[in-house]
Design a protein around this nucleic acid. Sequence first.
DNA 1: GAAGAGATGAGAATTGATTATCATTATAGG
DNA 2: CCTATAATGATAATCAATTCTCATCTCTTC
Lengths: 122, 122
Amino acid sequence: MQRDTRQRRAIRRVFMSVGRPLTPDEVLEHGQRIVPSLGLATVYRNVKALADAGWLSLVELPGGGLRYELAERPHHHHFLCRSCDLAFDVHKCPDEVEELAPEGFEVDGHELILFGRCAECR
Amino acid sequence: MQRDTRQRRAIRRVFMSVGRPLTPDEVLEHGQRIVPSLGLATVYRNVKALADAGWLSLVELPGGGLRYELAERPHHHHFLCRSCDLAFDVHKCPDEVEELAPEGFEVDGHELILFGRCAECR
DNA sequence: GAAGAGATGAGAATTGATTATCATTATAGG
DNA sequence: CCTATAATGATAATCAATTCTCATCTCTTC
């Protein structure tokens, strides 16, 4: 059975308040402001459980480590800051992207990533 | 000084003939058809040297491992087959993509990745 | 065709990310 | 409040990718 622990609540709260994709390390950092004793293993366990439960989804951006974000959000893409390495949401999407595939290829999804410097880093 | 070895020639030839982004493992596999004794460390060394020299460029797609492709090619994007995990070039690009960024963000590049099944795998 | 120096190949070592272990803690239910 | 048991946290273990080591090989030049 699933228990509602302090650390699980903190992790959920982090995702809801931050509103952008987070790596496990980022989750740990933010989560420790709520539950200082939070450990990395707990973050990995919960983030995985929340993803299995469909509450989080996996975001794979260039540059190593996986990130997670709230699932069930409207279609969107991402901006990756080359300076601070944080990922942000981009709430617009060019149309008809999936028609760009070569002849004979079957497309079932796409990801658009913008690179640059975020408002903070400029 | 740089020497023109059999293995380096083979690696260059692989990239020129295959025409899509390759992981070091894929380079090894193809390269061994030309120089059977080719080793993985040599692939890593040369791929890195060729990238430093500007002859190859780095392609980071979701799903782990880095890939390399011929540099100095016209702007293009990529298709990643969910079945065989090979990456292919997509020679079209939606316009004005970089204008989709949030207010205050400075965009200096973008990557569009289509997912699905390649012609072979269907 | 000899010699010097860069390159290679096999395997060991390293790295960073993720997972497993296990003693301890804390939650849900009675 | 008590108890059973899921969850936690610190650390060790694992894993895949990449780099290093070093004896050996082979380009290049003379």
